[in-house]
């Protein structure tokens, strides 16, 4: 029982972190119909930025977050404006191919610069934890979890309450009509992609703080998790990504208790398939994006 509660608690905090990885991925997919296979590479790039800041300036990873977010926003904006916008209206296969290639390029550069070694950002609080009953909760993971929840709600507020959010949503619903309002779709797409990259970078920083990362296995795992969570939660839905992240985190954590390590991905896929059978539009999915109109 203790073991089970511990796994559940770990699953929740891990799920929050996964949600932060997925929320940007889901946003880009929902708005632009781009499945960004380089999302995991963005997260790891962000992790390296925070790691470098920590190594050279001793900057605490939580304080590095704004810097990582701004740097990754700029990176994402330029990638979308200069590269992905070229094929954004093309069949989805082309964007898959392009973002896959982009991921390879980024990861090989990272490997060249930093080698393929596992890295982690050491903090004094990483190994500390507190105890509720019989359950052990590490401070670092709990902080990462709350940060993920706050960012998810902030992003949802941006999308539903601000002019920019409405313009992003409108461009996602009907790009041609949005342009007739004078909304610069290319710019809006780039901003959307920049936001997603920034959130990926922040998630990568948190992952580097509570665990370890490397440029070979981490990115693929994160992209896969983001994919599963986005479909689980419903495309383009921020709260859906949060719910999907928690479901996946708990399922993987408890599943990991019962099965051996390599089965974790199988559990993720089983959860995905089960959801698609029971609720094809995702946990909190709406049919809104089904009504997408292209010029």
């Amino acid at each position: 029982m203790t073991q089970f509660a511990q796994a559940a608690a770990y699953g929740v905090v891990q799920g929050g972190l996964l949600a932060l990885v997925a929320v940007g991925f889901s946003l880009v997919w929902g708005i632009m119909n781009v499945i960004n296979l380089s999302h995991g590479a963005f997260a790891v790039t962000g992790a390296y930025v925070a790691w470098l800041l920590n190594q050279h300036f001793g900057l605490d990873p939580f304080l590095a977050i704004p810097i990582v977010a701004v740097a990754m926003f700029g990176f994402g904006y330029v990638i979308q404006r200069g590269l992905i916008n070229l094929v954004v209206n093309a069949p989805i296969f082309l964007t898959l191919l392009l973002t896959f290639g982009l991921s390879l390029v980024i990861l090989n550069i990272l490997q060249l610069l930093f080698t393929a070694d596992d890295r982690t950002i050491d903090t004094s609080y990483a190994s500390q934890s507190f105890v509720i009953g019989t359950v052990n909760v590490p401070y670092g993971r709990l902080a990462a979890f709350f940060l993920a929840v706050i960012i998810t709600f902030a992003l949802a507020a941006l999308m539903t309450r601000t002019r920019l959010g409405h313009a992003i949503g409108a461009t996602g619903m009907d790009r041609g009509a949005a342009r007739l309002m004078g909304i610069r779709a290319r710019h809006i797409y780039a901003v959307t992609f920049g936001i997603a990259a920034a959130l990926a970078g922040v998630a990568g920083t948190m992952i580097a703080t509570v665990g370890s990362f490397n440029p070979t296995t981490t990115p693929g795992q994160l992209t896969l998790d983001a994919f599963v969570i986005s479909v689980l939660g419903g495309l383009g839905n921020m709260y859906g990504a949060l719910a999907g992240g928690l479901v996946l985190g708990i399922a993987e954590s408890i599943g990991g208790l019962l099965l051996t390590g390599t089965w974790v991905n199988a559990i993720a896929m089983a959860v995905l398939i089960a959801t698609l059978i029971i609720r094809p539009s995702g946990l909190i999915g709406k049919a809104q994006y089904g009504g997408r109109v292209e010029v």
């Binding site: 949503g169 041609g176 949005a178 309002m181 004078g182």
Partner: peptide
């Protein structure tokens, strides 16, 4: 659009998931 031409397209193409107010405000983007 900036120069002063607005186009009400065939089939209206309102932003279907947004409210009337949000649609109008986007018109003034």
């Amino acid at each position: 659009v900036d120069l002063g031409i607005a186009h009400v397209p065939e089939g209206r193409r309102l932003f279907s998931g947004l409210t009337v107010r949000e649609n109008l405000l986007l018109g003034g983007w």
